[in-house]
């Protein structure tokens, strides 16, 4: 409880600092946009980490759930004229329902097969949206008001991280992790593996829906091309580079990769080439990701500073 409060106080302090910098125009429009993007990417990466990193179920369809959130929230605000919060909640709920409906049959599959099935489902979602004239078809749903502000993005990000962190550090979260570690043993320990896989998948999808709502209400448009499997790869990359099963790892890489993308924004092709090389080199030299399944914490810092012996042993 104390740690949670400290975390929230820290988050509010960070918010105040960034807000101050934005208000005083030290942070200009370009970086403000990227900070919002960072928040959205953190939500996406942390929520996928719950599915892939903690529960061990490869998913390359996260962009599909993001698309559902993006479109559904926009339908609620633009077409039905409802308040933003209703739109966000509707987007999240829609993604959750779809996540549940997709997860239930699909999560029987394992490893590669699950990965490609989710990839296919993500694409099916996108192609379906593409064929609905009501939401603009191939040209996208336009004229979405910019309701997403830094404040919205930041606090929804904090809520996501807290939600998933608390879930993981509970008996329910441990049940999910046990599935990743050894599914047969988890069953033998009384864990209803199907139920927990579906729970993790549904929670992950829900927050991807939230991220989608933030996304479409920041960029004025929901376009099918924003939610291809390349976007899913992007999110998966953040999770794997940060370390599967490390929330702080996902946060760090979400910040880092968004920052790198922003710095290289004027050379779009070089940006992708550098990004690709980074992926390959990092995977060859550190396949477990930056943090492995460890969390970045003050305790870890003091351990590293206080003598790397134990830390080194653990990394092995």
């Amino acid at each position: 409880m104390k740690r949670d409060l400290m975390g929230i106080v820290g988050a509010v302090a960070l918010y105040a600092l960034l807000m101050g910098l934005i208000e005083s125009e030290v942070i200009g429009a370009f970086w403000q946009l990227n900070i919002v993007l960072i928040c959205i990417n953190i939500i996406l990466a942390v929520s996928l980490n719950l599915i892939t990193g903690f529960t061990g179920q490869f998913s390359i369809g996260h962009a599909g759930f993001m698309a559902v959130g993006a479109y559904l929230s926009a339908v609620f605000t633009v077409k039905l004229g409802l308040p933003y919060i209703v739109g966000i909640l509707a987007g999240a709920a829609g993604a959750a329902i779809l996540g549940f409906a997709i997860g239930l049959p699909t999560l029987r599959l394992k490893g590669d097969y699950l990965a490609i099935a989710t990839l296919g489902l993500g694409e099916i979602i996108r192609i379906t949206i593409l064929n609905i004239p009501y939401v603009g078809g191939a040209s996208g749903l336009m004229g979405i008001p910019r309701y997403t502000t830094f404040t919205w993005a930041f606090f929804l990000m904090v809520i996501t991280v807290l939600f998933i962190k608390n879930f993981i550090n509970s008996s329910h979260g441990r049940a999910c992790i046990s599935i990743r570690e050894n599914e047969i043993a988890a069953e033998a320990m009384g864990v209803d593996t199907t139920k927990y896989k579906v729970i993790a998948f549904t929670i992950g999808a829900t927050f991807a829906g939230v991220a989608g709502g933030l996304f479409s209400h920041y960029f004025y448009i929901a376009h099918p091309a924003s939610f291809t499997f390349m976007k899913s790869f992007d999110i998966l990359t953040m999770v794997v580079l940060g370390g599967m099963g490390s929330i702080t790892g996902s946060i760090t890489t979400a910040i880092l990769l968004t920052y790198i993308s922003a710095e290289l924004a004027s050379y779009p092709e070089w940006r992708m080439v550098i990004y690709a090389l980074l992926l390959i080199v990092l995977m060859i030299y550190r396949p477990q990701g930056l943090f492995g399944n460890k969390e970045l914490s003050l305790k870890l810092f003091s351990r590293i500073l206080g003598g790397g012996q134990r830390g080194a042993a653990e990394n092995k």
Partner: peptide, 27 residues
């Protein structure tokens, strides 16, 4: 270099190679 590494790491590498060929090709 990744033989024996976790499957997902190799998968990510393959995605990296794919991006490299696509955007390297564009350049």
């Amino acid at each position: 270099p990744l033989r024996g590494a976790p499957k997902i790491a190799i998968l990510i590498t393959a995605i990296g190679v794919s991006l490299l060929l696509e955007y390297g090709g564009m350049i």
